[in-house]
């Protein structure tokens, strides 16, 4: 069974077509990058995957649950890290974690245990007592990723999670999330930065609301540089804009 299956997905903002006939399947335990330039429709796709938007065009199935028919079962299988930070800055890391755990019905000892385990996976265990305001950007992001793991999702969605971070923090986060995929989690990572993609990853290329390619990064490049391949795929259409 595919961890995340999207078929024939379409969405419009009034007359503007944001997504058109988007289809792909994510294999369990793989890191799949959603690669697309700004305005490709990545954030719209993420809003549909997390049910912030709904559409009558197409179908989204998360771990066997159709998001239109069983939205709550589907959402319980998804961990999300949004592009914009979603943190209470004046509360501690642990309190942010326990708030989120409670939204998923996990409390008490179990919430603490899961929170500690998730923070440890992201190398953040010793920061549980710190106020979020005192953390740097990279640590805040890692906390958000840890938080998205508390309810033990099967699919982790990250919408350009390294925006605004310095190179070192960016690399650390990319490495941490690749480790999560190696541990069996299905990761779907939206980005426009090709250097965040490893040769062994899968890549879905999204451009102007359509899927241009879905393949392994190595197969997609055929020995060429991924940046060049990506530029070639998206350039002609951009030049016409």
């Amino acid at each position: 069974m595919s961890a995340l299956e999207v078929s024939g997905l379409g969405y419009s903002y009034g007359a503007k077509r944001a997504l058109d006939g988007v289809s792909f399947c994510l294999q369990p335990g793989r890191f799949t990058a959603l690669l697309g330039p700004n305005g490709a429709g990545k954030s719209t796709l993420f809003s549909l995957l997390t049910r912030l938007f709904v559409t009558s065009e197409g179908r989204i199935v998360v771990a066997g649950h159709d998001i239109a028919r069983e939205p709550r079962a589907a959402l319980s299988k998804i961990g999300v890290v949004f592009q914009q930070p979603t943190l209470d800055l004046d509360m501690s890391v642990a309190m942010n974690m326990s708030y989120f755990a409670a939204l998923h019905g996990v409390t008490g000892q179990e919430a603490r245990r899961r929170s500690e385990a998730a923070l440890a996976r992201l190398g953040m265990a010793e920061r549980a007592g710190e106020k979020v305001r005192n953390l740097n950007g990279g640590h805040r992001r890692r906390m958000e990723i840890a938080r998205a793991l508390i309810h033990q999702p099967e699919v982790l969605l990250l919408d350009e999670p390294t925006v605004g971070l310095d190179t070192k923090s960016r690399r650390a986060i990319v490495a941490h999330v690749h480790d999560l995929a190696a541990g069996g989690l299905t990761v779907f990572w939206a980005t426009h930065l090709v250097d965040e993609i490893a040769p062994g990853d899968d890549v879905v290329v999204l451009h102007q609301g359509r899927v241009l390619a879905h393949d392994g990064a190595a197969a997609l490049t055929g020995g060429r540089d991924l940046t060049e391949v990506f530029m070639d795929m998206t350039a002609p259409a951009e030049a016409g804009e």
Partner: peptide, 15 residues
Amino acid sequence: QEMGSMRLLLTSPLP
């Protein structure tokens, strides 16, 4: 909503 916390709330699996 601007900070995103509302999104966090609305993506939790409750009605």
